[in-house]
Amino acid sequence: MQPFFGTGVALVTPFKKDFSVDTEALVKIVNHVIDGGVEYLVVLGTTGEPATLTEGEKELVIDTIVQANNGRLPLVLGVGGNDTAAVVAELKTRDFSNFSAVLSVSPYYNKPTQEGIYRHFSAIANASPVPVILYNVPGRTSSNVLPATIIRLANEFENIIGVKEAAGDMVQAMKLIQMKPKDFLVISGDDMITLPMILAGGAGVISVIGEGFPKEFSEMVRLGLQRKTDDAYALHYKIADSIDMIFEQGNPGGIKQIHKALGLSENTVRLPLVEVNEELAGRINSFVKSLGY
Rank of each mutant, 00 (worst) to 15 (best):
F4K: 13
F5I: 04
F5A: 07
V9G: 01
V9F: 09
T13D: 00
P14F: 10
P14S: 07
L26I: 12
V33S: 10
D35P: 00
G36S: 05
L44T: 03
T46H: 03
T46F: 03
G48H: 12
P50W: 02
P50L: 05
T64H: 06
V66G: 04
V66R: 12
A68Q: 03
G71P: 02
R72G: 00
P74W: 09
P74Y: 03
L77E: 01
V79K: 08
G80F: 02
G80Q: 05
N82T: 04
N82L: 01
A85F: 06
V87P: 03
A89T: 09
A89D: 11
K92F: 00
T93A: 12
T93Y: 09
R94K: 15
N98K: 15
S106D: 03
P107V: 08
Y109H: 10
N110Y: 00
K111M: 07
P112I: 12
G116F: 14
S128Y: 03
S128L: 02
S128E: 02
R140W: 11
T141M: 12
V145N: 13
V145C: 15
L146M: 15
I150V: 15
I150W: 11
E156I: 06
F157M: 07
A167G: 11
D169F: 00
M170S: 02
K175T: 07
K175E: 14
L176P: 03
Q178D: 13
P181V: 09
P196C: 08
M197Q: 14
M197W: 03
A200S: 11
G202V: 06
G202K: 12
A203K: 12
G204M: 10
G210D: 04
G212Y: 08
R222H: 14
G224Q: 10
Y233D: 01
H236W: 06
D241R: 14
N251G: 11
N251A: 13
K260A: 07
G263R: 10
S265G: 02
E266I: 07
R270A: 01
L271G: 09
P272E: 08
E275V: 09
G282M: 07
S286E: 15
F287N: 05
Y293G: 00
